[in-house]
């Protein structure tokens, strides 16, 4: 197990030799990521430090890609997606454009989930979706929109929950087939998002720790799920403030199922069930 001093050294060396600053990550989970990296690379801690000090940008990006957590799913937590579809979208439907930012989008499943409900509501055409992540490898997968069928098949149940059922109106039942949005090839273990969705999504590398908005626009909705759990309280508050400043009014913020904003009202948000709504300060 690595000591707290070793983790500090790792963070310092990485910060000195790259654009990445992990100082405000949640320490315990961050330490586990570094330990896992050492295990995967089968090298000693000080060898890792040496290699980072050599400053090879490809190696440093490899390190960053491997210490970030990339878990994501199609329609993770259907109740949240139902709330987005039936509670948030009706409030945005008359906007001229709808801009949505997915910071920490990983391999992009939630960007595509969002596109699918926008399309079902007839709003996709006037929507712009932006996925950003620190992990270049995951962004590549996101752009391709191609996933393992075996690993994603169980989430297709979630698709039915969100697309074909409406908990707010039980009489509303539809029968949208998966094939409307996906090409499924179980033999080769592939589920691929259809081109009309892939071509619309924009995926850009961006580090949330920089506390910047990489796009010259403001957003109607920001969806950032299970990203803030890797940050300490201090950084969490700064990122929430970044979201506040870059949301329009009305504007909506969706976090992970078990994430919350400490003292939400003073940060400028009201909690409405599964999401947060921007309030005027």
């Amino acid at each position: 197990m690595l000591t707290a001093e070793q983790i500090k050294l790792f963070i310092r060396v990485l910060k000195y030799n790259s654009e990445y600053d992990f100082s405000d990550y949640a320490p315990k989970s961050f330490a586990r990521r570094v330990e896992k990296l050492l295990e995967d690379l089968q090298i000693d801690f000080y060898e890792l430090i040496d290699k980072i000090e050599n400053g090879d940008p490809d190696f440093i990006q490899f390190v960053v890609n491997n210490i970030t957590v990339n878990t994501t799913e199609l329609f993770r937590d259907p109740k949240v997606w139902q709330a987005i579809r039936y509670r948030i979208l009706p409030r945005l439907k008359d906007n001229e454009v709808i801009n949505i930012w997915h910071p920490g989008c990983s391999s992009g499943q939630e960007v595509y989930s969002m596109m699918i409900i926008l399309n079902e509501e007839g709003l996709l055409e006037k929507s712009n979706l932006y996925g950003t992540d620190i992990n270049t490898e995951m962004l590549e997968i996101a752009r391709k929109g191609e996933y393992s069928y075996r690993l994603n098949v169980e989430y297709l149940q979630n698709f039915d929950e969100v697309i074909n059922k409406n908990p707010y109106d039980y009489q509303h039942v539809s029968n949208v087939p998966y094939s409307k949005y996906f090409e499924i090839d179980p033999i080769n273990d592939i589920i691929r998002v259809k081109p009309f969705l892939r071509e619309k999504a924009v995926f850009v590398k961006h580090n949330l720790v920089s506390l910047t908005n990489p796009f010259e626009r403001q957003f109607d909705m920001i969806l950032c799920r299970n990203v803030l759990i890797y940050f300490n309280r201090n950084l969490q508050s700064k990122v929430i403030n970044l979201f506040y400043r870059n949301l329009k009014y009305p504007g909506y913020l969706v976090l992970g199922y078990h994430e919350t904003i400490l003292d939400a009202e003073s940060m400028g948000f009201f909690k409405h069930g599964y999401y947060f709504a921007k309030k005027l300060k």
Binding site: P27, K28, S29, V69, H258, E259
Partner: peptide
């Protein structure tokens, strides 16, 4: 511990969650 999350204790004595593998 919530389903599908790791639950652990952070060094600041708080309960933290994670979606690591």
């Amino acid at each position: 511990a919530p389903a599908n999350y790791h639950m652990y204790i952070e060094v600041s004595n708080t309960i933290a969650l994670s979606t690591e593998e």
